[in-house]
Nucleic acid binder design. Structure first.
Lengths: 231, 231
DNA sequence: GGCAGCGCTCAGCGTTTCCTCAGGGATAGG
DNA sequence: CCTATCCCTGAGGAAACGCTGAGCGCTGCC
C-alpha cells in the first residue's frame, strides 16, 4: 500500500500510543512513537514526519516546550495536541496557530483520524472542498454540514461522528464493535446499546425519505447502502 | 500448495488448538501452537507469523498482556482474539481497532476462517473487492450482499454462512458432517437435520431459477455445481 | 440560577431467526 | 414392485435481537 505519510505519536502512556499507532497504521500511515519530550524532539529532528500527535502532559518537558524547541531549530511540522479536558485546554487554544489543532482526551478514533486528515489536507495546500457523498447524502467535512438531497440536516456531535464513520465505509457491513470502537471515546465502558439509540436518532433525521440508506444487518451490525436492487 | 502464511494459535484447550490448527492447515497455512501466554510471546518473538489467534483466557498471563508485551517489543502482527460471550467481550472492544478482530466462543470454523482471511487481506493492503462467484451466483464478502444473476438475495446469518461455505468449495461434495462442523458452532449438539432445513431455505432463495446449483448427494451430503449436461 | 440541548441508560415490545419436529415424497436395493 | 432409508419442507415455539419512548444527569449558555 502506498504510504500516506509519516506520523510521530508522542505520549507517555503506552495504551494511548498503541491505540493511536495501530489505528494510524491501519489507515496507511507510517508511524513512529516517542514516550518523552526529549525523545520526541530527537526523533522529529532526525526523521522528517508529516505530522506530530503530541500529548501536552509529558514526564520531562511538556508538549508546548517540545513544539517551541522544534520551531526554534527550524523543524516545522503540523502538530495535533492531545490534552485533558481541563484548564490546559485554554492554553492549547492560544497556541494552536497555523496548521495546528488539538483533541481532548478521551477522544474517539474517528475524531482523531478525521483531524489528522484535515491537517494534512490543509498543509498540502489542497483547496478543494472536502466532502463525503453517498447517494443523495452529502457531508461537508470542513463545515460539518449535512444534506439529504437539498434538505439540510442538523446533527448533534455524536450523530455526526456516527454518520461520518458510516459514510467513510459505504456499503461495507460494520460490526457493532467496529462502530463503537471508532465513534465512541476509547474509554467508553457503558452500555453498548447506545449505538442502537443513535442509529434510531440518525434514521429519524437522515432516513425520513426514501430510499432508506441505513440498513440493519441482523446479528452483525449496520451498513450504509442503497436498498437491494436489480443490477 | 504454496503457503498462505504462518499463523500462531494460542489456547490452553488442546481441543480448540487441534481443531483450529487442522482447519488452518487444510486451508494452506503453516501453523504453530502455544498453550500459555509465555509460550505465545516466546514463539511470536522467535518465529515471525502473519497472524495470531489468541485466547483471552490463559492460565498464566492473559491475552491482553500477551498482545501488550509483543507490541512493546516491536513485534507487531494482527491479532484475532478468542473470547467467551460474557463480560470479557466488552474488554476486547477497544483492542480491536486497526486490523485486529475478535470471535466469541463457541465459534464456527467458517466464521473463524473468514475472519482470518479478512484480516490478512486487509493487512496485505489489498484493496480489490473481495467476492466469490460460481456460475451466475455472486457473493460480496465485504458487504455481505448476494446476487443470483441480477437479482439480489436477502439471507439470514446462518443462511449466509452456509452458502459461503458452499461457494468456498465449489463442485466438491461436502459431507453433512463437514458442513455441520464448519458452519455451525463447534459445540453444536442439536439435531443434525437443521442442515436439511437450511438447505431448503437456501434453495427457496437461491435456486428458484434454473439451473439449480445446490445438489443433494444422497447418502453423503451436498455439492454446489452446475447440473450434469450432455455435450 | 434557570433552561435547553446533549449523551446515555433503561425497559418494554414487536419482529426475526434459529431450531425442533413430524408427515410425506423420493430413491436405491432387493 | 415393495420396503427401508434418506431427504424435503411446512409449521410452530422459544429465544435472541433490535427499535424506540421515557427519563435522568451533566454541561454550556443566557
Amino acid at each position: 500500500m502506498e504510504t500516506k505519510g509519516r506520523v510521530l505519536v508522542v505520549d507517555d502512556e503506552p495504551n494511548i500510543t498503541d491505540l493511536v499507532a495501530m489505528a494510524l497504521r491501519y489507515e496507511g500511515f507510517d508511524v513512529d512513537v516517542a514516550a518523552t519530550g526529549r525523545a520526541a524532539v530527537d526523533t522529529a529532528r532526525s526523521k522528517p514526519s508529516s505530522l506530530m500527535i503530541l500529548d501536552v502532559m509529558l514526564p520531562d518537558i511538556d508538549g508546548f516546550e517540545v513544539a517551541r524547541q522544534l520551531s526554534l531549530s527550524g523543524h516545522r511540522l503540523p502538530i495535533l495536541f492531545l490534552t485533558a479536558r481541563d484548564a490546559t485546554e485554554d492554553k492549547v487554544r492560544g497556541l494552536t496557530v497555523g496548521g495546528d489543532d488539538y483533541v481532548t482526551k478521551p477522544f474517539s478514533l474517528e475524531e482523531l483520524i478525521a483531524r489528522v486528515h484535515a491537517i494534512l489536507r490543509r498543509s498540502a495546500g489542497a483547496s478543494e472542498t472536502n466532502r463525503l457523498e453517498f447517494a443523495d447524502l452529502v457531508m461537508d467535512l470542513d463545515t460539518q454540514e449535512v444534506w439529504r438531497g437539498d434538505e439540510p440536516i442538523e446533527l448533534t456531535a455524536t450523530e455526526y461522528r456516527l454518520l461520518r464513520y458510516l459514510m467513510l465505509n459505504p456499503r461495507r457491513v460494520l460490526t457493532r464493535n467496529q462502530i463503537l470502537d471508532h465513534v465512541w471515546d476509547y474509554d467508553f465502558g457503558g452500555d453498548a446499546r447506545v449505538l442502537e439509540t443513535y442509529i434510531s436518532y440518525l434514521r429519524k433525521k437522515v432516513d425520513v425519505v426514501e430510499p432508506h440508506l441505513i440498513h440493519t444487518v441482523r446479528g452483525t451490525g449496520y451498513s450504509l447502502r442503497l436498498p437491494p436492487q436489480v443490477r
